[in-house]
Design a protein around this nucleic acid. Sequence first.
DNA 1: ACACCACTAGACCAATCGGTCTATACATGT
DNA 2: ACATGTATAGACCGATTGGTCTAGTGGTGT
Lengths: 183, 183
Amino acid sequence: MEQSSRDKLAWVAAKLFQQRGFHGVGLNEILKLTGLPKGSLYHHFPNGKSDLALEAAALAHREMTRIIDDAFRDARSYEDGATTLFHKLAKLFELMGKHTGCPISEILFVGPEQEKFREKSAEYFEAWTSQIEAHATRLGMSPELARQNAERLFVTLQGGWTLARARQDGDALRNLGRLIFPG
Amino acid sequence: MEQSSRDKLAWVAAKLFQQRGFHGVGLNEILKLTGLPKGSLYHHFPNGKSDLALEAAALAHREMTRIIDDAFRDARSYEDGATTLFHKLAKLFELMGKHTGCPISEILFVGPEQEKFREKSAEYFEAWTSQIEAHATRLGMSPELARQNAERLFVTLQGGWTLARARQDGDALRNLGRLIFPG
DNA sequence: ACACCACTAGACCAATCGGTCTATACATGT
DNA sequence: ACATGTATAGACCGATTGGTCTAGTGGTGT
């Protein structure tokens, strides 16, 4: 079964937004890459670019959620899961061409005007953190330590991603384990 | 003494870029805020928006360098200096309206096309890291530990900044000390 | 056959984009 | 007084922006 026009638009938009941000991508470019006319876009996303961006962010969020679960599902320890996650994201980063930032930040940080966007970003980030927290407790960590480690993992991930992007080197993400788990 | 037109342009541009990114700010908006005509902009920055962005980034870089030095200069320990830095940046973040991201990322991550921008970002990030590293060794830390801690501080800072922006809460930056220095 | 609906198709729009251009103001040196 | 160079001033340009609108297409139910 072929991917629906709606999905195609959201995927292409997500990829482009991650490279140049919300303001850096024009609708025409998205349409050219998908091969769809403008009418289709405004049929599936009546509010235009904003709707499309929100859907692209939701898409990226779901994918990230899946990746986190994949990394921790078969982990024998929290440290093991976190390291796997770093490697998975490094791989993804390289696969995307080493020019992408955190999907959520790039799509949803558009400025002080769009509060709804910013709220969504906070919601997604919190979801990731508590998801990691849940895995940590499941793996035997105490509740307070789990929360703290989850937040630490999140900020490390964000910062590492930025560093990887600047350096054009996925190893900045891969080596985060050594940074966060000394010894 | 009044600020020169060139500096005024760069400062206003830096502030706006940090909120909405390079692509999210038009020249007209910068000109309106500075009160200068377009002729002045292209007189001081012959290559237009790119020149302006590079100067804005250089400005932000110098300021960050100064803040890091201020935080560590009178620190009695590395941990003390890092904590002070977190607090200073939290203050700055709140002063700027809680909507700004890392100046370098926001200004210089414009997409795969502008390699020069990306290279500059890597250069600035490396400068910050080795600056922190130098402070760490000065405060008695071993060379390997100094490098590792400097990188850890950098990624934590980046991630914390992103989190603070999403949450609209400078405390995400202020509390990074507790996250990175457990116990 | 016909109506209905989801979707495609793209012409068209005002507004804004970054950038170029010419004209002018003003200070300084001679 | 005059020339020179720096900087201001803003009209103007083609291209592109996000968005609207009308027309048509194709499948489904009756």
